[in-house]
Amino acid sequence: MLKIGFVLPQGFQIMGLAAASAFELANTTAGSPVYGIGFYSELGGPLRNSFGATIETLPLARRKLDTLIACGLLSPAPTPDGLLARLRTASRLARRTASVCTGAFLLGEAGLLDGRRVTTHWMFARELQERFPAARVEADRIFINDGPLWTSAGMSAGIDLALGMIEADYGAELSTAVARKLVVYHRRAGGQSQHSTLLEMDAKTDRIQRVLSYARSNLHLELSVPDLAAVAHLSPRQFSRAFTSETGQSPAKAIEHLRLEAARLMIEQSRLTVEEIAAETGFSDTERMRRAFLRGYGQPPQALRRAARMS
């Protein structure tokens, strides 16, 4: 059984513990206790969270834990020296150390980020880099696994990080089963952007949301305005007007953004050729995809693939 220890500062954000549910469900899914979960603070005892409620904790002494996960605050604040000292000791004894959201600042204060690729919530990424210049902060990542160090973006990204750990420990089958039980629509890979095209479009009505979900699942199709209008049960003219009103984009521009987001993820994380990715994401040819990448990212697909492989 692998022991997971959540390291909590006073006033920790409760959503940071969402990752614990993934490990809990891994136990029930596996049919045996593959993980043990504990909550730790500097001295132990009741600890107040950001809501004002308390949780009982154990002292973070010289404990042999497989994995440490530092949870953060709503916004970064100095960590008591005593907790930092115990965190350093516990990290040396652990197989891996991780953080959720602003928990990366705890690891930085403890000197655990130096020379590592790390991430945190995009709102605090610049501050993290400025405070800990020896770290290599990648602001636009869901989570990063750099050797024994794992870091995640916002609080909900802690679930993605936990699922990644479960996959690394026990395989993709268990991780996928846990994701289904958590009703995670799509388990995000670590390299995926923190910014979601679907989220940014923020459709207000079910019919436009349905169209966007349909388009995201069928990027290999033509996805013309008449096709999308049929999904929304509207005339093409009514659909174009409603879509633009709700998303602030024309259907054609929105579809291109969805194709770009999917293609970039495949460029960075898959072994498919550029030609195969262009076909899979609905670009008619590689030249059209290259022009779209230049408009969207200022670089061609091959440059992004080289950068991803180097990192």
Rank of each mutant, 00 (worst) to 15 (best):
G5P: 00
G5C: 05
F6P: 00
L8D: 00
L8A: 03
P9Q: 04
P9Y: 01
G11T: 01
L17R: 00
A19Q: 01
A22E: 07
T29S: 14
V34Y: 03
Y40W: 05
Y40G: 01
L43W: 04
G45K: 00
N49W: 03
N49I: 03
S50M: 05
F51Y: 13
A53C: 13
A53I: 11
I55M: 04
K64Q: 15
L68A: 02
G72P: 03
S75N: 11
L83Q: 01
L84E: 05
R86D: 06
R86M: 09
A94G: 08
R95W: 11
G103V: 03
A104S: 15
A104V: 09
G108P: 01
G108D: 03
L112S: 04
D114T: 13
R116Y: 07
T120W: 08
T120R: 05
T120L: 05
H121N: 13
F124G: 04
A125T: 08
E127T: 12
A134G: 15
A135I: 05
R136F: 14
R136V: 14
A139I: 07
D140G: 11
D140F: 15
L149P: 00
L149D: 02
T151G: 10
G154F: 01
A157C: 10
I159F: 10
D160H: 13
L163R: 02
G164L: 04
M165G: 02
I166N: 04
E167W: 03
G171K: 08
E173C: 10
T176C: 12
V178M: 12
R180W: 06
Y185M: 14
Y185W: 15
Q192F: 09
Q194F: 15
H195W: 14
L199T: 02
E200D: 13
D202L: 09
D202I: 02
A203I: 00
A203L: 03
D206F: 10
I208H: 00
Q209L: 09
L212N: 04
Y214H: 07
N218P: 05
L219Y: 04
L219T: 03
S224D: 07
V225Y: 10
P226L: 02
P226I: 02
D227Q: 12
L228G: 03
H233S: 09
L234S: 08
F239I: 10
F239R: 02
S245T: 13
E246K: 07
P251E: 01
I255Y: 00
R259H: 07
E261D: 14
A263W: 00
Q269W: 05
R271A: 15
T273H: 11
V274G: 08
E275M: 10
E275H: 07
E276L: 10
E276R: 14
A278M: 12
T281Q: 12
G282W: 00
S284G: 12
R290F: 06
A292G: 04
L294H: 09
G298F: 12
G298Q: 09
Q299W: 02
P301S: 12
Q302F: 15
A303L: 13
